[in-house]
Design a protein around this nucleic acid. Structure first.
Length: 117
DNA sequence: TATGTGACATCAA
DNA sequence: CTTGATGCCACAT
């Protein structure tokens, strides 16, 4: 089992803080979060953080998908389609494990959290 | 100190 | 546009 303690209070929390900023009915990509944290190509790190974040209830990991809107981490949730249900529950349609109108629901932290505009 | 792992992203052909 | 290979960084052992 590769479950680690949420007490990391490190890079992980960095991700959690951003993920928690994701508004209702919105979704973002790992790269966007990674880039926001200053790590462009380290998107993997974000996904990895989510793994630990999954233990937390304050982190809507279901609102985080890859750059194409694919629910790559859906199989990490308890239910087979739990992640999809959660998204649909927020108004985000999901078909074939992909977010419909992903760009429409795309939420860029680099723009939302930096320079509100 | 070194090695392995990972829910992605990017470059090259 | 697709397919194939690599990098990236932090955490755990």
């Amino acid at each position: 089992m590769t479950i680690y303690s949420p007490d990391t209070t490190s890079f992980f929390e960095r991700v959690y803080v951003v993920v928690r900023q994701i508004p209702y009915g919105r979704v973002t990509s790992y790269g966007a979060i990674a880039a926001f944290l200053g790590r462009r190509g380290s998107a993997r790190m974000v996904g990895w953080a989510m793994n630990a974040a999954h233990n937390l209830s304050d982190v809507p990991a279901h609102r985080v998908v890859n750059r194409v809107g694919m629910l790559t981490g859906k199989h990490h949730f308890a239910g087979t389609h739990l992640m999809q249900q959660l998204l649909e529950s927020e108004g985000v349609l999901v078909q074939q494990d992909q977010v419909v109108h992903f760009k429409e629901h795309f939420w860029d932290p680099t723009k939302a959290l930096s320079s509100k505009g």
